[in-house]
Design a binder for these strands. Sequence first.
DNA 1: CGAGATTCATGTGAAGTATACCTTTAGGCTTAA
DNA 2: AAGCCTAAAGGTATACTTCACATGAATCTCGTA
Length: 410
Amino acid sequence: MVSKKLNGFFEKFLQTDSLFANKKVLQSVYVPNEMEHRDEQINQIANILAPALKVDKPSNLFIYGKTGTGKTASVRYTTEQIHKVAKENNIPVNVIYINCKLKKIADTEYRLIAEIARALGKEIPPTGLPTDEVYNIFFKALDFKEQILILILDEIDQLIKRTGDEVIYNLTRINSELKNSQISIIGISNDLMFSNYIDPRVKSSLSEEEIIFPPYNALQIQDILRKRASLAFKKDAVDEGVIPKCAAFAAREHGDARRALELLRVAGELAERSESKIVQIKHIDEAEEKIEKDRIIDVVHTQPKQFQLVLYSIFLIRNDEQNKKKQIFTGDLYDIYKDLCPKAGLRPITQRRLSDIVAELDMLGLITAKVISKGRFGRTREINLGIPSHLLNKVETLLAKELEFNDKKN
DNA sequence: CGAGATTCATGTGAAGTATACCTTTAGGCTTAA
DNA sequence: AAGCCTAAAGGTATACTTCACATGAATCTCGTA
């Protein structure tokens, strides 16, 4: 019975034609064939990197700019072109792109180097090897023939904030030891104040060249959206005013084009699902809500169990004590958390660690935790939930489910 | 009344520990000559 | 004897714990007006 129903569903799905002509164009990893409004920056990058084609080491390059200003796309675009030309002419140029923000992939020195080595085709276990050894493997994989490696480290500020600047120092230093090859590093950072964190020596070697990406203004975002929309959607599938509205949303967020594109894509998906013939303005509003929801749900969902439990404890306190208008402090949180541990079948963690977890949840934006001094009564963090109120219930049930599941198992 | 000392509850850095995983080595077993 | 498998030994990164000291404003203390 069920299958019959499903058959119908899929058939219907096949018959309703999609609003999209090519959805890939709107995905965040897509690198367009032409970058709008970034000619100047791309030229600069190209000039800096061009020596690679003569097998000279290009200067290291540092790129600043807020999220969604086309940093990553410009760099990828330029390096792809170089790679292509290099391939056609048999010039040994290799490009590796690594996003340092991704947890469990490149957020420590070991993992970063391991990831680079993997990109060079080496198998590196997730743990167990000495870090020197990993450097060695990487070194050998690189130096066995003459080549130029262009290493793109996206969101490098995240990495350095977590692990210090030693990695970068090592990477820049390795050049003098390489006999055949040379590495040139492109660092990309969202944080304009980032240079304060790093050692001046590292800084000077890393940013031999610097490029700053200004935010797009609303008109530029509209251009970009139009261009992409014309590729992504079928003709006349987008209602008047949808694109300006998308652009306006994004311009409000300091000109974040990535956000605008995501908004447009999700709006398209929603329109399709509601069997609308065109993407309308109302879909944009829905999309904005959905994106926010998905993001939070996803972040919460992918947290380790202990983090989830800590978060859940915060929920409980909020529900319980709201009448008393009490603030949430670390000590209270720890008590609740400890009580909850056996229920979830987890071994309680120390208060020291909880402090770190709270700090990390703060970084993720799920809560806000401010260190305050209560004078005579000590010093603590004042914790508040940072989740929009219309999502609180959803997240809470999600947490309850995740933790309850664990309960059954034990 | 105000400057400085005190105090509390927790922040925070450093060092130590447990766990999970890796490679190497050695012993035991099987197999083929 | 050679080859293969398994278990033990020796080593590492990471997440967490333990230890110890740092923080910073409300409160207390005490000298002074």
